[in-house]
Write a protein that binds this DNA or RNA. Structure first.
Lengths: 193, 193
DNA sequence: GAGTAAAGTCAACAAGTGTTCACTGAAAAA
DNA sequence: TTTTTCAGTGAACACTTGTTGACTTTACTC
């Protein structure tokens, strides 16, 4: 699995790497690959699991060490983007395979993202300003936030790590976008609460 | 180019199709491919151009036949999603290669999306409620809208065309998200106007 | 320490890969 | 009408691809 993630870094995408390449980087003969996975798709699904485990670990940590309510948005965005840079391979894999992988992998990712959205919606529900939201609308808003964060992540992953100025620009932009969303949420009225 | 788009439909992604496959579907011997493109990357860049030409055509049409101001958002979203379904191959190509293609293709797509964001920002500028926005913030907001629309498009492309209920769900969700964004925009204050 | 299960090796397979070369036929320009 | 350009052909090249079967080595259990 590490070998696959290593091959993904930079130019290549998972769908374009071969079983033999993975085996070679893993320091193993191609036939040995089959002792662990039934084929590349199987490996892909394992990587989806692994990557989202990383994400859920992050969210669990975030909940157990709550941020100060002041600048909560800015701090959350910063925490997330930092985390995605520290676990670059996993996030790069998700970003690349979200739309272009095999349908099995794609659907697995989509399912996990839906879960993530629900999780975030549940975290958001207690906020006073979001009292008037029904479940659907809460997920709608959470989906917007998740989309925004993912988009920013994907942009950052493509920037040279040394280019701190560009990273900061993307960072600030995402922060503003999420603030805009919360501003909109404060003015929102759900149809049926 | 049509052959490549055809091969992309469904499971495969551009990075995983071969020059020989494209040639075969195009009804031509592999060597003939080189009379038109220097290699697959060259073809990819040509497809980026072609796909965004489609998009700009849509936006030009939209401007020349303006929608009624009432339900403007709902109508715009509907127009866009309809268009993306009618020109499915182009939009599917962009969705798939946005994050997983070669860096040349990826950068070309990103450049075009930035252009699109600027274009939308310019279209948005005259709105009374957006008076207080400076250029950067206008692009920030336009970026949010574009992201949301793209995300919805990508979701729809993965749904069976027959499944109208699911398409409608995605559609309604995107509509709400964009309304939320505009609600937030109405309450936004730029730092320096 | 013997026996078993997991992980790895080697060799072979048919098929597919990008790219090149010298060549042919048709259309366009001179 | 001759010449030049353009698009397409067929064959060959050296490789890489996924997958298999029969063996060997390593690690763990009784």
């Amino acid at each position: 699995m590490d070998a696959a993630l290593e091959l993904i870094q930079g130019e290549r995408s998972f769908s374009s790497i071969s079983l033999r390449e993975v085996a070679k980087v893993g320091g193993v003969v191609p036939a040995a690959f089959y002792r662990h996975f039934s084929g590349m798709e199987d490996l892909g699904l394992a990587l989806v699991d692994d990557s989202f485990r990383t994400l859920h670990t992050m969210m669990r940590e975030a909940r157990s060490a709550p941020l100060p309510p002041s600048n909560l948005i800015a701090n959350s965005v910063a925490t997330f983007l930092k985390y995605s840079q520290d676990h670059r391979p996993h996030f790069e894999f998700i970003a690349k395979e979200r739309y272009s992988g095999s349908s099995a992998v794609r659907l697995a990712i989509r399912r996990e993202i839906r879960l993530w959205v629900s999780e975030l919606a549940a975290d958001l529900a207690p906020f006073p300003k979001l009292k008037s939201f029904n479940g659907d609308d809460l997920r709608m808003m959470a989906g917007l936030v998740v989309n925004t964060v993912i988009a920013a992540t994907e942009l950052i992953l493509d920037v040279d790590t040394k280019d701190v100025a560009e990273v900061a620009r993307i960072h600030r932009n995402a922060e503003k976008q999420i603030m805009l969303i919360f501003l909109g949420a404060a003015a929102w009225k759900s149809q049926s609460s």
